[in-house]
Amino acid sequence: MNATEQIVAKARELLESGTVECVIGYERATDGVNARPLFVYQAEEAGKLIFDQTCAHNLAKYLLNRKGKATAIVAKPCDVRAVNLLINEHQVERDKVLIIGVVCPGMVETKWGRVSEKLRQACELCREHTPVVYDFLVGEPGDEEAAVEYPDVARMEALSIEERRAFWEEQFSRCIRCYACRQACPGCYCSECFAERLDPLWVGIRIAPSESWIWNTMRAFHLAGRCIGCNQCERVCPMNIPLSLLNRKLEKETLELFGYRAGVDAETPAPFATFRKDEKLEVGE
């Protein structure tokens, strides 16, 4: 059985037995090329579910709308880490979520109504193909995963500070502050975002480079030690701002300083939720 058939069979079984009320998965979008999220409530509709290399969405975001309701979710390794993040942060209850983990081949770019052969950038850098946790696994678990590397961040770090400043100035100047990055992010779930606060007005509504600068800086920083690297923010960015370069820098820093990667399990406290009294962090010393 291929991945799609396994997911369909499992979803049907779960809905028929009443184990869950809803299965969140993917279906083919109307353009016949892309995938889109699908919420299955009836066993008869499970046949619509699909899984292939176009299923790029991180569906963990939708669990936030189903708090306290038994839900199954089709999740790739990065999505599973997002579920872990939400459990860790008490947004989702573990016993209400049934994870249909999928061994991930990496997602491909879809452009102009065509599926390309090219892996998405985040997937190209990703070394995790088997979910860290699952209730049911689709596919064969792979071998030992290779160490995480940050070649893209290292390239940025090699630039001079003026070059980096100019680079980000140019990138952020394109930002139209549509906040799609926030809407797609499983880690961005504040009911009132600082960007929407009017008093104090942290992010002004006018079109100005400095307003985009503060938005992009703080969006990334709010995910420091929390970003699980699903790269939804960059995927949905209409202006192609390389947000992963910001997220991955913070990921690298928290990994180096605190040895922490978000979402690997649901128990370890996030780096900013804890501390060690004797640690040396080159701050205030």
Partner: peptide, 12 residues
């Protein structure tokens, strides 16, 4: 602040 400082440096 230990994370913010290198991050700001990264931004220029």
């Amino acid at each position: 602040l230990a994370v913010l400082r290198p991050f700001l440096e990264y931004l220029g």
